[in-house]
Design a protein around this nucleic acid. Sequence first.
RNA 1: GUCCCCGUCGUCUAGCCAGGUCCAGGACACCGGCCUUUCACGCCGGCGACACGGGUUCGAAUCCCGUCGGGGACGCCA
Length: 489
Amino acid sequence: MSEVRLRFPPSPTGYLHIGGARTAIYNWLYAKKHGGKLILRIEDTDTERSTDESMSGILDGLNWLGITWDEGPYLQSDYADDHIQAAQKLIRDGHAYKCFCTKEVLDKKREAAIAAKLTYKYDRTCCNLSQEELADREKQDVPYVVRFKVPDSEGAVIFNDKVYGKIEKAYIDIEDFVIVRSNGKPLYLLSNVVDDIRDRISHIIRGQDGLGNTPRQILIYKALGSNIPEFAHMSLTLDPRKAKISKRSHGEVVTVQFYKDHGFLPWALVNFLVLLGWSTADDKEIFSQKELIEAFSLEGLNKANSVFNYHKGDPKFFTDPKALNINAYYLRTMPIEDLTAAVKEEFKSEGLWDEKYDHEKKKWFQTTLDLIRSRFHTVKDFAVMGRAYFADDYSVDQKAVKKNITKYENINEWLGMLAEKFSELQNFSKDEIERVTRELAAELDIKPGILINGCRTIVTGQLAGAGLFDVLEAIGQDRVVNRLKECRY
RNA sequence: GUCCCCGUCGUCUAGCCAGGUCCAGGACACCGGCCUUUCACGCCGGCGACACGGGUUCGAAUCCCGUCGGGGACGCCA
């Protein structure tokens, strides 16, 4: 009876975007926290716009994020009969009626109302039809839609939203809304409620843009004689100009796929997203899955919309800086085994993976990842900025060349001498490398930094990086010596 | 136009329900310092907000009213 059941009901008309993912996450968290179930339902009743491709994209996105569901995916279109039967029941019980008004006539009335600066609301022409008029039209097979008959008493729909508190909407402000199209297909407002009743949904957590639908849906629940679930509306995610985010106007950066493609750790994205409009009183921001489920509460949901701080074309941040920061945080603090797995996947797709990293070179691989991870923001960085550790086809940063190489006319010669010294080393260890490097600097009477930074530039292609002696030890004697001799830039 | 909702640093937010401990705390970003061969990490410090106006009160970010600002919904879309 008091079973906790939530649902995530995306419509398959596009990829999973971060707003949808956030909704899914909250529902999932609530279900987990209360030992409930999460039902995945694909609301595909808009056959015009629904595609299979979109559906699998959404499923992929959820899977990648680690958002698991307990039932489904159910397809709303499979239950069209239920919806129609519900509509018929509503008509029988006097809660709905057939409306024969044509779209054209309605459009005219609407335009006239707007022109006269009046509020347009369906005038109930067909609700007031006499028995004969109704029978007449039915006999002539005049197409009709089904409209819900909103109570015409004084009252209001009142409900207590878990986030927004008491919400009140007067009946008079609600139009007799259409629940079945003239082609016989049910509409969202109806289908959604009928499905939620059948799926025994106890809690509905959805975006604040659904707040306006709630009073109408509650009317349907009541008319159908069903229990009304708890509602919790969550704030929306806006762009810096305060517009609702959408793939249409913001592109890939608002899709979950984008983050998968750009080296995000799924949990880091979840962690970032959950913070957009939710928080705990103790200001904790980094959560393990277990901690998050434990900490999650509807009370932490913020009523005010939040902005996804993304600026197109920002040279430094390709997405919200906080998202990047959280990803980088996980990258440098996660267990090395987990990091290894993430990098392995990336390397495989980049053709950088070596099976030895799983066997005889495993220790080396992990030590190296650990050496370089604190500077990286995404998993991609390991294959790009960290490329020189794993392959020879790394590119050399020209800024580094300018600063550390071309500035010194004898640098090639010096680095050649360094290569010579390195090649003579019996034990190519960090201490030995350092000793020899400093010795050469002393012989040459130059600052060690010149050798160190020049060496880094040539051997790693990077302007900055971990302590050079650790770097050289990691890259190894042969490769270091060769690269210094070749001195490619 | 009608209805609904919201309004604390640039951004995410704590505090608001149960007014004083808040000349407002944390995180990200930014700036400076320490560390250092570089960069990052780490540590230390700085910048930076209660939308505005009334009221209630000994006392208001917190309660009330108004103004302004923002968002959402008003489809035979979901």
